[in-house]
Amino acid sequence: MHKEDSKNTPSILNGMRYEEELLYRMRGVCLIQIVGYRLELPVHSVATASTLYHRFFTRKSFYDYKYTRIAQACLFIACKSDESSRRAQDIAKSWTYKPKETRSEKAIAKFISDLLYNELLVLEVVCFDMSFEHPYYDMLEFVKEVGKKVTQYG
C-alpha cells in the first residue's frame, strides 16, 4: 500500500474530507474497543477486529455502509478467528447496552440478522484474510529489552 493511498480512499473520492474520514475510523475502532472491553476479549482479538475494520474502509466508502454495522461484524469475525468465540447474542447485548434500559427481543433478533449479513459482506471485501501479524508482540519484546538495558546501565 502506497502512502498516498490513505488520501485517496473511496470515501474521499466520494467527497468526504480527510479529517472527517479519520474521525469515522476513530469512532469505529473506539466502539470495537469499548465492546471488546465489555466482553472481556483478549487484546489480540480487538486488534484483529480493528485491522479488519480499517481494511474494509480502504476498499469501501463510508457513504455506502454504516460504520457501526461494519464494526460489529468485524468484532464478530475477529472473535471467531482468534479462538475466543463469543455468541452473536452476547455481542448484541453488550453492543446495545445502556445502563437502565433492557432491549427487546425483537431488537436483538434484528441486530443478529444484520450481523450475520454483514459478516459475509466484510469477509468478502477483505477476501477472507483473517490472520494478521500484529506488531504488539515484537513491540513488547523490544520494550522488555530496553527495560533490561535501562536497569543495567541506569
Binding site: 471467531k80 452473536a88 468478502e124 477476501c127 477472507f128
Partner: peptide, 30 residues
C-alpha cells in the same frame, strides 16, 4: 444459522490460506 459462518470453516480457511506446498491442497478462491 445463529452463529453465522461456522468456526470450523473459518479455521480451515485461515489455515489453508497460509499454506502453500505442492503436496497440500490449495485453496484457489472463495
Amino acid at each position: 444459522e445463529k452463529e453465522g459462518l461456522p468456526l470450523n470453516a473459518i479455521r480451515e480457511i485461515k489455515i489453508l490460506k497460509q499454506l502453500r506446498h505442492k503436496n497440500i491442497i490449495q485453496l484457489i478462491e472463495i
